[in-house]
Simulated scan of single mutants.
Amino acid sequence: MAMSGGKEDGEPMMDMNTTPLIDVMLVLLIMFIITIPIQTHAVKVDLPQNSNSNPQNPIEPDKNKVSIDQQGQIFWNGSPVTDVTLRQYLDRTVVMNPEPELHFQPDPQARYEVVDNVLAVIKRANVTKLGFVGNEQYRQAF
């Protein structure tokens, strides 16, 4: 059993036998685990609802895209804009921290004059993060 002699043979053992105590505690722990009902955690979340009355912010915080189609129409993230509206959007992006990237993608058939005017608006707005997207469409031209 769990008995041991003292320091010298013949002396009584002074240490308490903790094995039965540990066994009883483990049995009680298992009984409590089994009898506790399973808790289901439900968290109520109020999701935003789509409504037409809330104006959407046309400026994305990461990257925005300016494109020009064949007819010379300017688009900001897919929505048609004028030169004045484009400048207002660019002025708002320049003051954001960090400044979002601006992706510029003109159509290959767009008039150079329109593309040049848009690039001038971008330059006057002091945009520092500008990238030309879709240059691979011109690789066969040269």
Rank of each mutant, 00 (worst) to 15 (best):
N126M: 08
S67F: 07
T82F: 11
M3E: 15
T82M: 11
Q137M: 13
N117Y: 06
G134K: 07
P37L: 03
P108Y: 02
L86M: 01
V84C: 00
G131K: 10
P48V: 14
F142D: 15
L29K: 06
A125P: 07
V127L: 03
P100D: 05
N50G: 09
L26F: 15
E60C: 08
D107F: 07
N52E: 04
Q137Y: 04
D9S: 13
M96C: 09
L90D: 04
T35Q: 00
Q39V: 14
P80E: 03
M1Y: 10
I59E: 02
S67K: 02
K63S: 15
V127P: 00
V94D: 09
L90A: 10
Q73G: 00
Y138F: 15
Q56R: 00
V118S: 09
D91K: 13
Y112A: 10
Q109M: 05
N17W: 05
E8L: 09
V24A: 12
V43T: 03
I59G: 04
T85Q: 14
K129G: 01
L130M: 06
A110H: 08
Q109W: 00
N126E: 12
N135L: 13
S4M: 01
E60Q: 13
T85G: 05
L21Q: 14
Y112E: 10
P61E: 07
V84F: 05
M96K: 06
A125S: 15
N54L: 02
E8S: 10
G5N: 08
N117F: 10
V24K: 11
I38G: 04
R111H: 11
E113V: 09
T35V: 07
V121F: 07
D107I: 00
N97G: 08
H103S: 07
P12W: 03
P61C: 03
S79P: 04
K129Q: 07
P98D: 11
P58L: 07
H41I: 14
T19R: 09
V27D: 11
E113R: 06
F32L: 11
